[in-house]
Design a protein around this nucleic acid. Sequence first.
DNA 1: TACCAGGTCGCTG
DNA 2: CAGCGACCTGGT
Length: 286
Amino acid sequence: MVRIKIDDMDLGQIGKSGQCFRMKELEQGIWSVTAGAQYIEAVKEGEEFLFSCEEDEFQRVWSHYFDLEGDYCGYKKQVPEEDSYLREAIRCGWGVRILRQDLWEMLVTFLISQNNNIPRIKGSVKELCNRFGTEKMGRGLKLSSAGMWEEVTRSFMTFPAPESIALAGLPGLSDLGLGYRDKYILHIAQCCSGPEGEKWLSDLREADYENAHATLLKQYGIGKKVADCVCLFGLHHVGAFPVDTHVKQILTAYYPDGFPLKRYEGYAGILQQYMFYHKINRLAAE
DNA sequence: TACCAGGTCGCTG
DNA sequence: CAGCGACCTGGT
């Protein structure tokens, strides 16, 4: 287990921030996180977080995944007092960070997300993993009767490999609630399969925001918005600013003269995430 | 019943 | 190039 103090992170907030669709609260504040073929559980205890892995794995995988090097306090400080809307959104979304999620998983996930709603997206992703993923054993957390945290083994489903989906074809993608998005998923799976697919993905990782976005736009089913989500959540180009129906509504309601994108150049995506969070959780939070 | 959900495609002017 | 209808599907 790893015990570490982390500022500015709230797993519950991240879980309902609409950037990841497989995070789940198991019980009493124990969060399970599945990223590609990796699994971990985490819980907050006072000022510290407890993670179900060894120190080296935490440093190698999870510290990066949770973007612990990101200075969220610094980002927030850039928002002026006068911007009362964004100030409030930031206050409301305290503890939200932009996770560094798996690129291939983000491609599929945000293709599914288009013209869709979050519960349905979660359902489709889960079924996709159940059908094409692999069952693996991971480590979880459990509170012993003596009140001590201990590690337990837990089975989980990995996110499917591109080849598994490509092989299944359109018929294999039926009954997952994908609707017309099934053909987009099949296309991207074919694109990411095999050695060429591997190369396509690694080239995408090397590219800067402009080139990555342009490359993504060429894919069948990927438009401006999904491309920006993949850039933001799968490539950590935090300058990407996805405009979906919610953000569009916010922009027209609170920024009739235009959102000051230039002011936040290079990290506007982080502020977008607070805006989005506020919009979809404002009713539930009150 | 009609409208909406983290949009994009294909067609038209 | 901009505008616009169609689109799977499940929930109000």
